[in-house]
């Protein structure tokens, strides 16, 4: 297994947001997470990247494993190692505004992986080529469209050679006509056999790209399965409700 999550919980004060998440993902698989607003999707991704410290549970990515316990802080060195196993793509891109596209994609390589500038630049250029932005290498983020910024974001997430890529609603901030160019890049990564977890509201895309779909509600996994099953013949009432609400919104 590329990723193994056991009994993960997360509370903010009294509010418990994740209530015992168990999750496994094989190398090369794509998991799409769907669920209503406030159900805990972002919190789950952020826990996997330890941007939030889980309250309890175990996260193992590749050979790196951390066990979280209430009231005790995980070792910083271990957190750093775990973080380097994942690449995060944010809804609002969060590119570094004082760096060019190329420098954004070099940054993690130079600081976290301690690659030389030349190595980092070579790798960054090939990643920018992959997302179709070779000609924008020297542009600053504010000179790029939302879709282009998000593609730089994807290249940056891949720059530290993570075993697992995490996407938190990567197209939600985009104008409709820019969504396609970003989804195209993600589809291509799926076709290359990248291991990914994607939170999205784009159901057609989810159906195409996912090996498995997972519905989260109130911090628990309601249902999980291959797309045909989850969309075609959902087993749980809550899944049916969620899907019918979604299609109402579209019509």
């Amino acid at each position: 297994m590329m990723l193994e999550v056991q009994n993960l919980t997360k509370s903010f004060g009294d509010a418990s947001v994740l209530n015992g998440i168990d999750l496994q993902l094989e190398q090369g698989h794509v998991l799409v997470i769907i669920g209503p607003s406030g159900s805990g999707k972002s919190t789950l991704l952020r826990c996997l990247n330890v941007l939030e410290t889980p309250t309890s549970g175990t996260i193992a990515i590749g050979a790196q494993r951390i066990r979280f316990e209430p009231g005790s802080k995980p070792k910083h060195a271990e957190v750093l190692l775990l973080r380097r196993q994942t690449g995060m793509v944010f809804q609002a891109y969060h590119l570094f505004p004082h760096m060019t596209a190329l420098q954004n994609v070099m940054e993690g390589q130079i600081t976290a992986l301690r690659r030389t500038k030349t190595e980092a630049e070579t790798r960054a250029l090939s990643l920018l080529e992959k997302v179709g932005l070779t000609d924008k290498a020297d542009a600053y983020p504010h000179q790029l469209s939302g879709g282009q910024q998000q593609r730089v974001g994807i290249a940056r997430a891949m720059s530290i050679d993570p075993k697992l890529l995490l996407f938190d609603e990567p197209t939600s901030a985009l104008d409709p006509e820019l969504v396609r160019e970003v989804l195209k890049v993600i589809r291509q990564l799926a076709a290359e056999g990248r291991t990914m977890i994607i939170v999205t509201h784009e159901m057609r895309f989810a159906r195409d790209v996912a090996d498995r779909i997972m519905l989260i509600d109130d911090g628990v996994i309601v249902e999980e399965g291959p797309p045909e099953q989850l969309f075609g013949s959902p087993r749980h009432e809550r899944t049916r409700q969620f899907l019918s609400k979604l299609s109402e919104n579209y019509n």
Binding site: N49, H76, L80, R83, M88, F90, F96, L113, R156, I160
Partner: peptide, 25 residues
Amino acid sequence: RGQWEAAYSLGQTRLTTLRRIILPQ
């Protein structure tokens, strides 16, 4: 906050993030 988080997600330490991402901005 997103700037801190983006840097952390690349595996940067707090000090490196301060020096290279936050202070220049």
